[in-house]
């Protein structure tokens, strides 16, 4: 059986929990999980085929989640990168002064979806997922699949520090913006293996994750039994049901299949 290395940030918790929901006997690939918070994995480097960091926190995190303080990239048949900063919010911020057709709100400049896609694609190339993809591909030809951070749930619209999410929703351009996000990520990561877009059935109004997937969210800290209580205001992390759907989408994109 092939072995895949799953590397990610806090969202790896939901992904691992989701994977655990898939019957072991039907799993077409063995997975090994390594996690480190936020964009910290940008502080890694490759030496002799091994992904390392001089940061002790990162070493501890990799050890605690994956059983080793560093990752021998040559051991794996494929890679799954989870999160890595690939989030819709970065694209959402770009639309603060702009809009997409058919919106025609005065004071907002019209931009085309292709231009937005291209602009966002350049942003993606500054994220941890990109850096890791480049580092891994310098060692091995094994395919790399990137899973984005999930869309926020709708409670984000109550958060004053992310007003652009509410604006995009109210302008009625969520569908176009989400399409630009998916297209930019697809164009960026297809060269390494593929981009696993968040499944349609988990989305609500195009740019949000449906609330049922936000119930009892699983972050990496919970996965590591460091914080068992889900936070009430966590509109970021999702649950194991979401994780299962993402992993099934990954298997489908990778040409692997798992029975239900």
């Amino acid at each position: 059986m092939k072995t895949a290395c799953v590397i990610g940030n806090s969202h790896i918790g939901a992904i691992k929990s989701g994977w655990d929901r898939i019957d072991e006997a039907s799993r077409p690939v063995a997975l090994e999980f390594f996690g480190s918070k936020s964009q910290s994995l940008q502080r890694t480097f490759v030496e002799d085929g091994v992904l390392k960091s001089d940061d002790e926190q990162i070493q501890r995190s990799l050890l605690r989640t994956g059983g080793a303080p560093e990752i021998d990239l040559r051991r794996y048949d494929m890679f799954v990168l989870v999160g890595g900063g690939v989030h819709f919010k970065a694209l959402g911020r770009m639309l603060r002064n702009a809009t997409l057709y058919p919106d025609a709100t005065p004071g907002r400049r019209l931009v085309s979806q292709p231009a937005l896609t291209e602009a966002f694609r350049r942003r993606v190339e500054a994220l941890a997922a990109w850096d890791l993809s480049v580092m891994i591909s310098s060692v091995t030809d094994a395919p790399i699949y990137v899973l984005p951070e999930p869309f926020f749930d709708k409670d984000v619209m109550k958060a004053t520090h992310k007003p652009f999410m509410k604006q995009i929703h109210e302008l009625g351009i969520g569908e176009q913006a989400a399409a630009a996000f998916d297209a930019a990520c697809e164009r960026t990561f297809s060269r390494f293996g593929g981009f696993v877009a968040q499944p349609r059935e988990t989305r609500e109004d195009h740019i949000f994750t449906a609330s049922k997937y936000a119930l009892a969210p699983v972050s990496m800290r919970r996965m590591m039994d460091m914080d068992l209580d889900a936070r009430d205001d966590d509109f970021v992390h999702k649950n194991d049901e979401y994780g299962e759907l993402m992993m099934r989408a990954f298997l489908a994109l990778a040409g692997l299949s798992a029975s239900k």
Partner: peptide
């Protein structure tokens, strides 16, 4: 452009 485009991309559009 209201987007922060690198010069090469801006010119392409």
């Amino acid at each position: 452009s209201p987007l922060d485009l690198p010069d090469e991309v801006a010119r392409r559009f």
